[in-house]
Amino acid sequence: MRSCSAECELLTPGSLEAVLCLLHDEPGLWTPIAGGTEIMVLYGAGKLTERKFVSIAVPELREITEDGGWISVGGGCSFTQIRRHVGIQKHFPMLAQCASWLGGIANQNRGTIGGNLANASPAADSPPALFAYGAELELISARGKRRIPYEEFHLGYKKTALALDELIGTVLLPKRFDDSLRYVRKVGTRNAQAISKICMAATATVKHGHVEEIRIGMGSVAPTPLRLAATERALMGTELTDAAILNVVIWEARRALASETAPIDDIRSTAAYRTLVAGNLLEEMLRTFAGAAR
């Protein structure tokens, strides 16, 4: 333990309202801690400069509700809650899958989806599925609520749309992907307890052999989790059922992918590997979709 706990404060107001008030009254002074699986790691290693924390582990943020066309996941829901939820398993199986890939069982019991997104690591495992499913976020503060598409959340490396007094209140998932084709894959340093070298999730609608809608999310290929907008554009309307054409489509898609991603060398992998594998996954995805569309 390289931090001195005697120098740190941690408040547990117990209700969402009280938490939001605190954040509002002294904006930027208090760092929220949910499951603590990011914060406590840095804290243990003596790498945190913050000294004042507020626990946002409150019941109001821990609910998953289904109504009409949406499933709403509270920002404080753990990945265990998410992967075990029947509605998520049914309508958003890739999110359940990603939840099962996050860390080990104990990390899933503690780690929250709000923490995963707010921490804003480009390697986080839940963002690709959220891109693929067209998720929206409800950000809350003592000032009120606002709703934004998830695409607008990440602004740069470890920079998000959250104001100093705001929390991720809810992750909203539209139930309109039940009939979509889907593809999800994590490439980690090993099969469990592994930070992703690349992770990817996609949904698509293919009609008469042509791509009608496609949404692709990818992690670890840019400073933020990425929705592959250029690749999606390149793929819109293309034909997947003709083998010769498919090869051209794949080639175009790889080009588009390369144009919008910029992987780096780091302690877990290399830029060259990530570039190559990202392209391979894209190809695998297209071949899978093509197979399903035939």
Binding site: R254, A258, A272, Y273, L276, V277, G279, N280
Partner: peptide
């Protein structure tokens, strides 16, 4: 590691050559 295998196997793979041209 996979990175080492990738380096070797991809050297001859058409996909990589294509990637290299973009």
């Amino acid at each position: 590691l996979p990175e080492d295998i990738a380096e070797r196997l991809a050297a001859g793979a058409p996909a990589a050559q294509e990637m290299a041209t973009v």
